[in-house]
Amino acid sequence: MKTIKVSVVTPDGPVYESDVEMVSTKAESGELGILPGHIPMVAPLQIGAVRLKTQGKTDIVAVSGGFVEVRPDKVSILAQSAEQSDEIDVDRALRAKERAEKRLNDQKRENIDFKRAELALQRALNRINVSDKHF
């Protein structure tokens, strides 16, 4: 089967680099699957999981937003933070989740901090889900 090179890069260094048969992820506009030979494209991503399929195996990487860039020979995912499913610090994510929930209960809805807490909650939940592979 044809494969395409994929790299997930963050400011703190590359997180994932490999040749895969299919990349599927959640873009702002909806679920997005990329196979080798896709036309060049750029799309912003939601906070969510990136699934990378090779030879019947699926690697999952949690990304906090960012965007995907597709070229004929390569797919790059640029996110401000990303972790592979087995590298996630679940305790930290659980703590972040509790913190965000507490903040959401304390704040008024239209507050800027409310939005930030909401995003933090999403990121924490995403990490927890990816580490449990609930997909």
Partner: peptide, 18 residues
């Protein structure tokens, strides 16, 4: 030259702050 999904403006909104 890329295809934009959904549009160039939307992408700039995410990309430029980043």
């Amino acid at each position: 030259s890329y295809e934009f999904e959904p549009s160039a403006e939307e992408i700039l909104n995410v990309l430029l702050p980043q």
